[in-house]
Design a protein around this nucleic acid. Structure first.
Lengths: 239, 239
DNA sequence: GAGTGGTCTAGACCACGCA
DNA sequence: GCGTGGTCTAGACCACTCT
């Protein structure tokens, strides 16, 4: 019946404590945590136990360890966050830096599909951010992100939006994206797609749907991207 | 000039030793390694050091650890290998078991693009395996795998081929696939695609190119899949 | 109960970054 | 030279599996 563990190892408890602290913003992104020894003394455990907890956090990319310097809260910088979750690149692995155009942001009630994807109550308010992403200056991806207003108050009043939205989520709203479930398929360009991307209607497009997951496990963004893959690819390493 | 580390930690040397042993087949897939203590005694290091090496191997999915039982050489079984690298599923995460049809295998010289992708000499012999993958009994994916004959002698004489090719590579040829670089794009169905998949020519198809990497870092398979994503998706988690 | 991996400790020393 | 994380050891005890 009950297959939950009968106990939680000490290093897991330390891990939980540290996750809570980071989530609450006890240390800001890019800031250093106390040293392993300091944390160990404070928590009344050995350094090795703190170390094990930090190792797990590092694997999950919540912190970054730098030998000789310290342990830092991981930061969603432009470069890093962008290339961690933005998988569009040139064939062969050349990575092009995307820019944005035609940004719009508006607030409205969630549609049923959005409420389902984000586990929201029917009719909850969301913000929809639409933008065209350019690669080498040419329109390549149509991107539509849907966020619960509750988590991102007044994000629709911010203009312009930064290139890397996840850095904004983290720094301004305390929402830390740690993973993203994506589903891809090929679809035909609609007239609207074709107009915005400079294609023929019916041309093949890569359709990507993403649910982004935050530190606390909550689903915080639903994003649909429609990508012209004539000169680009979606690159990913399975392991 | 030389940024290689000035030393290699002991646990890394143990790791290297164990990788070599596994690659050479000192223990067969699904077989248990000696216990941590036994390895430590044999290698003249502490149990903790062996442990750390085994932890790395476990993260890389080269071994599997089972508390109370032992450490086992990871096995590319049907279920596991299939769902580790076969990312096609029904929307929402339902995983359907694929079957195969219309297998053909033939031997020929590598084409330039194949020689480049697999780092082969021009004109090296390869085996091309083509098959149609069915999901729920319906043709869904056209798959073409290209392998260097040198690594897979007489694989073209084996019929029928198993559902999970990577299990065959591992068990019969000692080639252990540990990761795969994939590039995806949308493409239009050719007449041939359309005929085999029951689509209209020009319909959008998901085109997937994969380079599979073995334990020793060598590129051992180039695979092109063309997938009808009308009722299926390519699902992946970024983290 | 015996044997395995999993956790935890305490202490030593090493490699690195910086002042 | 000091403080940080990284490695290594030896030993204890815990949780799990099988006999």
């Amino acid at each position: 019946m009950d297959d939950s563990p009968h106990y939680r190892p000490l290093y897991r408890q330390v891990y939980d404590f540290l996750v809570r602290q980071i989530a609450e913003g006890a240390w800001r992104p890019a800031e250093a945590l106390p040293s392993e020894q300091a944390l160990a003394d404070k928590l009344g455990v050995s350094q090795g136990t703190v170390r094990k907890a930090l190792d797990v956090l590092a694997v999950e990319k919540l912190v970054e360890r730098r030998q000789g310097k310290g342990t830092y809260v991981a930061e969603h910088t432009q470069e890093r966050a962008l290339f961690r979750f933005f998988r569009i690149s040139e064939p062969g692995g050349e990575r092009s830096f995307p820019t944005s155009a035609d940004e719009t942001a508006r607030r409205r009630p969630a549609r049923p599909v959005e409420a389902r994807k984000l586990h929201l109550d029917k009719g909850a308010q969301v913000v929809e951010i639409s933008r065209t992403r350019l690669i080498d200056g040419k329109p390549a991806v149509l991107e539509r992100s849907v966020l619960p207003v509750a988590l991102f108050p007044d994000i629709d009043k911010r203009r312009p939006l930064p290139n890397a939205l996840y850095a904004l989520y983290q720094q301004e709203f305390g929402v830390n994206i740690v993973s993203a479930d994506e589903e891809l398929r090929a679809d035909a360009a609609t007239r609207e797609d074709a107009r915005l991307l400079g294609l023929q209607p019916g041309a093949p497009l890569l359709h990507i749907e993403r649910v982004a997951i935050a530190l606390d496990g909550k689903r915080v963004e639903w994003r649909v991207s429609r990508c012209n893959t004539t000169h680009l690819v979606y690159a990913v390493t399975l392991s």
